[in-house]
Design a protein around this nucleic acid. Structure first.
Lengths: 150, 150
DNA sequence: GTATCTGCAAACCCTTTGCAATAAG
DNA sequence: CTTATTGCAAAGGGTTTGCAGATAC
């Protein structure tokens, strides 16, 4: 049983909401899913431009809420004055550990987070929809660099 | 052994960095620590104004990085187009569970997060500086409200 | 006295939006 | 043919900054 492609999922989402599948949207989605990396609007825009794909930022900004609603991407954190996103369709849910020096990001999952979620649901009576654990620190390389400076 | 007040901590921070203790800064800090609540710049600014304390937003914006650096406050999440802060000095570290409907925020701590931190430090070689677990869902009241609508 | 801080207003930057032309279904 | 989408440029809204006067030390 093959997994549906991002584009298939998106087409179904559009049909259900009576929205339209355009060439611009297709190209943006292909670009987003072309790498595993996190992305932000400006970088995405410039990357496409460098490849000769000239789509306006407005179209990107207008597409993002649809992709989030369709479950294809999510915002991960706000930093340097703008939001950062990642695609989640086809990826196991994970959290991030980030180096504050070089900005490197590692991903991880931990079953204890699900236990915590369950306990929170019981304790506060919440229906839990999502969790995000964001850990910050210094990566091995940057620790070394800083150690040598001192 | 009495705990130092926020203002004392801040004065020491300023002295160490050759910065000045002004009436404006004192009033802003007093206002921030007057309640246990989270805050954002605009609300803080308007609250002070209503009390007849007219300090410019620029001064608030210029103070925040100092308070963060001094370990008195931290930013908690970016929402509705602006950053939200909380004071942390004198409070045990905690995480947040938020209702996406009514925006209610509950706080919690969980020792399993420290275990996760330790394991991450070992696994990735990071020196961990902070973690933020942000859980979103529906609070009991909003669940009920939504159930009744359906 | 000297360097920092303040308020103001302008600048900045990311994001959203109004509009007329274009394209999807 | 009807309605959604696009690109553009302008507007929006939070945050930062240059500057001249005020203030801490």
């Amino acid at each position: 049983m093959n997994k549906k492609s991002e584009l298939q999922v998106f087409r179904e989402y559009l049909k259900k909401n009576r929205l339209r599948y355009t060439q611009e949207r297709e190209k943006i989605i292909q670009e987003i899913f072309a790498t595993h990396d996190h992305f932000d609007v400006d970088t995405l825009y410039l990357t496409m431009r460098r490849k000769g794909i000239n789509i306006s930022k407005a179209s990107i900004y207008r597409l993002l809420p649809l992709l989030i609603d369709a479950g294809l991407i999510q915002d991960v954190f706000f930093e340097d004055g703008h939001m950062h996103y990642e695609h989640i369709y086809g990826h196991e849910h994970h959290c991030h550990i980030r180096c504050i020096e070089c900005r490197k990001i590692e991903e991880f999952t931990d079953p204890r987070l699900n236990e915590i979620e369950r306990d929170l649901a019981e304790r506060f009576g919440f229906k839990i929809l999502s969790h995000k654990l964001d850990v910050k620190g210094l990566c091995p390389e940057c620790r070394e660099k800083i150690r040598n400076m001192a």
